[in-house]
């Protein structure tokens, strides 16, 4: 792990990938590091609002990959597979619509980090061989609840927004609700399965 300063009061820890970043972030949060924000991402964990960098460094030296044993709650997302890009993804995967549904619904994903919008979780778990490129030009409006793929990420749009992910289907579950004690349904660490509705 490499710590890179980000201005006077933040540090980026660079790690090998999203799973390790989630592990480090979960461990750091549980251990109680001196930082206002602990933000995992694809290959980094940001520690923002750090008052004592030396103390942060000392604590992070104790972390070993695998320490957090990320094993979050399993959330099932009922999904209607009727997305606009279902045929396109089927062609890329060398199968048909039913084949896409079967492959996607048999995977268990893990929420690695949130970004882009509140409650928008980047889900890992898609095998590299099934990765699909983003759309060349994003759609101006993707409805809330849309389930999509981009690269080897899977994601569900919590609110309607522009977006360039390839859409497999949609769900009615509420991904983001500020009135809930846990506003993000798919907070980092949560495990996710898509269930054909």
């Amino acid at each position: 792990m490499h710590l890179v300063p980000v201005g006077p009061s933040a540090y980026l820890a660079e790690v090998a990938g999203a799973a390790v970043a989630l592990d480090l972030a979960s461990w750091a949060r549980r251990t109680g590091v001196d930082a206002v924000e602990v933000v995992p991402a694809a290959r980094t964990v940001l520690f923002d609002g750090v008052v004592d960098p030396a103390a942060l460094r000392r604590v992070l030296q104790r972390w070993r990959p695998g320490a957090a044993a990320v094993d979050g709650d399993l959330v099932e997302v009922p999904t209607t597979y009727d997305g606009d890009d279902l045929d396109d993804v089927a062609e890329r995967w060398g199968t048909d619509r039913a084949g896409v549904v079967a492959r996607h619904a048999e995977l268990t994903f893990t929420s690695a980090f949130c970004g882009f919008a509140p409650g928008f979780a980047y889900l890992t778990g898609l095998p590299d061989g099934l990765a699909v490129p983003r759309l060349d030009s994003p759609r101006p409006r993707v409805p809330a609840g849309s389930v999509g793929l981009a690269g080897s990420w899977c994601g569900v749009y919590p609110t309607s927004s522009p977006g360039g992910w390839r859409l497999l289907g949609r769900t009615d579950v509420s991904l983001w609700d500020p009135a809930r004690p846990q506003p993000a349904l798919l907070a980092p660490g949560t495990r996710v399965r898509f269930v054909p509705a």
Partner: peptide, 30 residues
């Protein structure tokens, strides 16, 4: 660049080469 956490005051440079200074409502990652 893989998406990573952003801080207040970060000077981002999009492909056009003109800087953007992130303010209070900046996205959490970029």
């Amino acid at each position: 660049l893989a998406s990573e956490g952003m801080v207040l005051g970060a000077v981002q440079v999009p492909p056009d080469g003109q800087p953007v200074v992130l303010l209070a409502d900046h996205p959490a990652t970029g």
